[in-house]
Design a protein around this nucleic acid. Structure first.
Length: 273
DNA sequence: AATTCCTCCTGATAGC
DNA sequence: TGCTATCAGGAGGAAT
């Protein structure tokens, strides 16, 4: 589930609940999710410390520790970050649990166990080594940065949007949404994009991600004019009412409107809102 | 370099 | 009701 907007919501949740509180104990319930360090080392790095600040790059959440280093969480397909107290219902698939004084807990929940838990010494180094592309909601993400990212890739547009080395943070749902709002076909070749299309794509990328964050990723609060309100319900284009087309792009199920999302430059200009 | 396929894991749902 | 097949908001690796 978690794409950039979800992870941003998790980050804010961590900020609102768990900063500057002593981690009194740590439970690693799924040691196989721990990467790069041993579960034992991770536990030692966390116990007795506190989180000083958080950062996010794409779908990666970093909780920076007092005394250096950071806990890295990647949420895979089904990850969630929950905060709860003793007596409240705990999430069902807790893989990592941090305990704070007074019976408060921060839990990494992940049904399918595709998530990752790690300790990183330096956030910048991690991002560089991973070759992650720029984060579309970071302050420096301007049109030129976007153009630069696109230049590194060729081939199908949606597959490129999903590539975390081109841009970090876009997943299957938001890729479809961005393409829909940009009026671009998922399989259009990057090298065939007109400059006007590149600019629309840039604007829509930021718009979609910002609005999703602002809505707290509650789909009910997003406009019905958005594709993602329809892909699991009536499967009709909110713009023209046609049934949505379905294809595979970048190895993922893709919904789009074959009337409103074209490969050529024949699109008539439009932007909602 | 791009594309396709497979794999990791668990659960919900559709179809028979 | 019970069974099986399919699918799922991620991503890394292998083969072509």
């Amino acid at each position: 589930m978690p794409e950039l907007p979800d992870v941003e919501v998790f980050r804010r949740r961590l900020d609102a609940t768990s900063l500057r509180r002593r981690i009194v104990s740590v439970a690693i319930l799924a040691p196989e999710l721990v990467r790069d360090v041993s579960p034992r080392t991770l536990k030692a790095r966390l116990t007795g410390r506190q989180f000083r600040s958080t950062r996010r790059h794409g779908k990666n959440l970093f909780a920076e520790l007092s005394g250096g280093g950071a806990l890295l969480l990647h949420f895979g397909m089904t990850g969630d970050l929950a905060y709860y107290h003793d007596g409240e219902e705990a999430p069902r698939h807790v893989r990592l649990r941090l305990d704070f004084p007074g019976g408060a807990h921060l839990a990494f929940d992940d049904q399918r166990k595709f998530g990752r838990i790690a300790y990183v010494e330096n956030v910048e180094t991690f991002i560089r080594n991973r070759r992650l592309g720029p984060d579309p909601l970071s302050p420096g993400f301007d049109l030129e940065t976007f153009r630069g990212a696109l230049r590194k890739k060729r081939g199908g547009l949606k597959a490129a949007l999903l590539d975390q080395r081109m841009l970090a943070g876009i997943g299957n749902l938001y890729a479809d949404e961005i393409l829909f709002q940009s009026g671009l076909h998922p399989a259009i070749r990057i090298e065939a994009l007109a400059d006007r299309a590149v600019r629309a794509l840039y604007r829509r990328t930021r718009h979609v991600l910002e609005k999703a964050v602002a809505a707290g990723v509650e789909f009910d609060r997003l406009p019905r004019t958005w594709l993602l309100r329809h892909r699991d319900t009536d499967r009709r284009c909110p713009r023209c009412g046609d049934p949505l087309a379905r294809m595979t792009a970048g190895g993922r199920t893709t919904y789009y409107c074959s009337r409103d999302q074209r490969k050529g430059s024949a699109n008539k200009k439009r932007e909602e809102r």
